[in-house]
Design a protein around this nucleic acid. Structure first.
Lengths: 100, 100
DNA sequence: ACTCTTATTAGCATTTTTGCTAATTAGCAA
DNA sequence: TTGCTAATTAGCAAAAATGCTAATAAGAGT
């Protein structure tokens, strides 16, 4: 649901989480360490991002590794671009693409 | 301020306003008419979009014409794409672009 | 001036979001 | 089992967002 994504993006710390994940997957603790807020607070921010499907989680024994969900971010950017009439090629199984 | 933009995008009706403006500028009243909420409510949604600089307003006698602010939407899409490492050429007076 | 239309602002109640501390779960190792 | 680290969930208070009705402003026309 796109609405969850846009709501998730509405908080600066959550956008910062996404920015931190730009350099690759990170452990929840390493993420939390980058912020002034308490760890439970950051945990909730992360779970909001996860709930919006912007992140996916992978358990690594004791800890949890988070990575950004590229396709969801892409789709959201596409949605924005449609507002200004930009083509945005979705490319979900685009069988024929040169019918002319 | 990017934060205002993302917050403005967090409400479905406000995104719908942007979508309605895709086909060109519209009067405040014509926009409001497309929604179930009261007119004052829509007026506030519009002012939040305006405050985020996503819209610009132009008086036309009795009424007010709103148009979408293309560049702000573009920049926001670019911000999203940086999260997934997409190049995104800002192009704010890009003097030299082929130094190599 | 008065009136009609268009749109915004004020003021309020309700809901949602945020952020904290305390409590809990999950896995690993003795 | 106990203990330790990593992380989430519970519960609450404070702040922000939402949406309504009533009141107000701003233009155009009479």
């Amino acid at each position: 649901m796109q609405n969850k994504v846009f709501k998730a993006l509405a908080h600066p710390d959550r956008r910062k989480v996404l920015d931190l994940l730009r350099s690759g997957p990170k452990l929840a603790g390493d993420l939390a360490a980058e912020f002034d807020s308490s760890w439970p607070t950051m945990s909730r921010h992360i779970s909001i991002l996860k709930d919006a499907d912007l992140l996916s989680a992978e358990r690594q024994g004791n800890q949890i590794l988070y990575r950004i969900n590229t396709s969801v971010v892409e789709d959201t950017a596409s949605t924005l671009l449609t507002f200004i009439g930009v083509a945005h090629n979705d490319d979900k199984d685009d069988k024929k693409e040169a019918a002319e």
